[in-house]
Amino acid sequence: MKLIGSLTSPFVRKVRIVMAEKKLDYQLVLEDVWSSDAILKMNPLGKVPCLVMEGQDSITGAVFDSRVIVEYVDTLSPVGKLIPERGRERTEVKTWEALADGVMDAAVLALLENKFAGRPPEQRCEAWVQRQLDKVSAACAAMNQGLGDKAWCWGNHFSLADISVGCALGYVDFRFPAIDWRGANPNLARHFEKLGARQSFIDTAPPAA
């Protein structure tokens, strides 16, 4: 399998961590979607991550969107099941993932509004940026409350919920280091520190600026 992505995308990082925790082999193919249209051959949306099945080289052999990819990858090996198969348990883990993905979406939108080269400074909207960062703050507060004093986001073991939360918080630290989400969310800060000690998180940390 080939995973097309970048070292800075939190969605790619989520897939990479899942692959590592599942102990699956793959080839990471780096792609800058902002400077090349090569990704369109595999994903018409022009986005990463994109997982390409072995021996395939067209859209029909590709899986895209991080939620779809991790869902598929979790079925490839019985090692470290990350997503419950059914029922309320599955819904809870996927809801954690959706919340964390929302943080990443909002942070990416805020970053693009400030940094996208195609938008001149006079066209950038600070109110839009603040609206996205308010979503980040609200989601962090919700995750902090949901976590409480539990060892893991869901159940009594590590799951996709924890991976998603860790990737979201890591991306906020990476792109918006001035945001002090830890100060108001001690439960989340504690959990993030624990997640950061896992080898899968260490190996996929975004490059230093």
Rank of each mutant, 00 (worst) to 15 (best):
K2Q: 14
I4C: 07
S6I: 09
L7G: 09
T8Y: 08
S9G: 09
S9Q: 06
P10D: 09
V12H: 00
K14W: 00
A20D: 11
V29S: 11
D32K: 05
D32L: 10
V33N: 08
S36C: 08
A38G: 09
L40C: 06
N43T: 05
P44G: 05
K47M: 08
L51N: 05
Q56F: 10
I59G: 08
I59V: 15
T60E: 15
A62G: 07
S66L: 05
R67C: 10
V68P: 02
V68W: 08
I69M: 03
V70K: 02
T75M: 03
P78D: 15
P78I: 10
V79R: 13
P84Q: 01
R88V: 14
R90S: 10
R90W: 07
T91I: 13
T91V: 12
E92Q: 15
E92G: 02
V93P: 03
W96M: 10
E97M: 14
A100W: 00
A100C: 10
G102W: 04
G102L: 00
M104A: 12
D105N: 06
L109K: 13
A110F: 07
L111W: 13
N114Q: 15
N114G: 10
N114H: 10
F116R: 15
P120V: 06
Q123T: 03
V136Y: 03
V136D: 03
A141S: 14
M143H: 04
N144T: 01
Q145R: 14
Q145P: 03
Q145H: 11
G146L: 04
L147D: 11
K150H: 13
A151F: 03
G155W: 07
N156C: 09
N156G: 14
N156L: 11
N156P: 02
F158P: 05
F158L: 14
L160A: 06
A161W: 06
D162T: 01
D162N: 02
D162G: 06
G166M: 01
G166I: 00
V172I: 15
V172T: 11
F174H: 14
F176A: 01
P177W: 06
P177S: 08
P177C: 06
P177M: 07
A178C: 10
A178L: 11
I179W: 02
I179C: 10
D180M: 11
A184C: 02
P186F: 03
K194R: 14
L195W: 06
L195I: 02
R198H: 01
R198A: 02
F201E: 02
I202P: 02
D203G: 00
A205N: 09
P207M: 08
